[in-house]
């Protein structure tokens, strides 16, 4: 977790918190709006990119992943995502190459 001994607060994190909050609200509006556009196959991609950006903002700033002393927390996050991808990708190896369905 981020350092939080009261004495050594470098500067107030409030600006970060509020900017992230604005960015998240903006992102929500953007997803909503982008979904109304016809981007063909890219609709889903755009939606996922925006969602991932928002998730990253929450994780990095609200959950303090960014300031974390420990690489360990990042390792947990990265390896979880890695295994989630294994689940999705290797399933798709089957679903994507079936000749009968």
């Amino acid at each position: 977790m981020a350092e939080h001994t009261a004495s050594e607060h470098p500067k107030s994190p409030l600006t970060t918190y509020f900017s992230v909050w604005i960015a998240l609200l903006f992102g929500t509006g953007l997803t909503y709006y982008a979904a109304k556009l016809d981007l063909g196959v890219f609709n889903a991609a755009v939606a996922l990119i925006i969602a991932t950006t928002k998730a990253l903002l929450v994780a990095l700033f609200f959950m303090h992943l960014k300031g974390a002393h420990e690489k360990l927390l990042k390792l947990v996050v990265i390896s979880t995502i890695f295994f989630l991808f294994i689940l999705l990708v290797l399933s798709m190896v089957d679903y994507g190459t079936r000749t009968w369905s």
Partner: peptide
């Protein structure tokens, strides 16, 4: 707080995936 934020993140994905398929 970590837990709460996580639940928020799940929703951030659920929203476009469930509500916004092919809306145009």
């Amino acid at each position: 707080g970590l837990y709460w934020h996580f639940v928020d993140i799940v929703w951030i994905y659920l929203f476009p995936l469930l509500y916004l398929i092919d809306r145009h």
